[in-house]
Design a protein around this nucleic acid. Structure first.
Lengths: 144, 144
DNA sequence: TATATAATTGATATTGAATTTCATTTGCAG
DNA sequence: CTGCAAATGAAATTCAATATCAATTATATA
């Protein structure tokens, strides 16, 4: 946790971005919640601690947190951008149940490697990649 | 081409959806354009043939075309949904240049297989999957 | 430490794609 | 033909993302 906050502090310094209580609070809430949060989710959580913090501030803060490399944007295709932890979290894909909406994070080094090979083949310099597998989870398999 | 139109016709019949000139025109335009079209793109193309067709009709038609299994939604993360051909088009991923926006369709059977293996491992019944690799293409590599 | 000043905040407004509404038109079954 | 439910097109609505702006606040420096 603390390391992540240091990274954030250094990022702010490097970019000439000021410290603020609000941003610290938002970062704390984000770091202590291991979920895929939308901006509104995060806003509601932050509200519980400091009800004065506005939506716009949360929105701007999570953007900075992303830029600092601590969050990653994920898109489950439901019209809302979500943010997940990036620091010390392996790159992974998502397996999303189209019935109940639940998802699993999956990591496969072999796929990662093949993706890089693919990029090389097309003389592409890869920066990041996404992978989503949509389907039905075990529980929903039997449902209609 | 004709086969795709037949699939569409049968889909309409099965679903009890009526025939209409507009829908036929929209399907024709879609099938004859090998691009990743947004709804607005498609609307503009359709306008050239039948200027009376409205945006909402195009929007509704491409949804039906997707449901019929002839189009697939793709999301490049630029805020607009795109549609690409699905019928007789291998499943593929996309390699997207973050500088110029160009993209390449990539197919890798090995990755496909690993994805299925991954799904099996988690007792997931896969329906579809997406893969995007973001990076810089050869031309943009040297640019600042 | 006081002050200048530029970044930040929070309320609100704007944007833009996706989706819905509804009166009119149209396909098609009987 | 006729009735009626589905389809159309224009316009309205929705909603997340983003921008605006006056008031506030962090911080460098005098």
């Amino acid at each position: 946790m603390e390391m992540a906050k240091q990274i954030f502090t250094f990022y702010l310094r490097d970019e000439g971005i000021r410290y603020s209580q609000q941003r610290e609070c938002i970062l704390d809430v984000f770091l202590s919640t291991e979920k895929h949060l939308t901006v509104i989710d995060l806003y509601h959580l932050v509200q519980k601690k400091h009800s004065g913090i506005g939506y716009a501030t949360v929105y701007r803060a999570i953007k900075i947190i992303s830029q600092a490399g601590l969050a990653r944007e994920v898109d489950f295709g439901d019209g809302m951008l979500r943010f997940e932890h990036k620091y010390k979290h392996e790159h992974h894909g998502h397996m999303i149940c189209t019935k109940c909406g639940k998802f699993i994070e999956v990591v496969d080094p072999q796929i990662e490697e093949l993706q890089e090979k693919l990029a090389r083949k097309y003389k592409f310099t890869p920066q990041r990649h996404k992978m989503q597998i949509y389907g039905t989870c075990e529980k929903c398999k039997t449902k209609v």
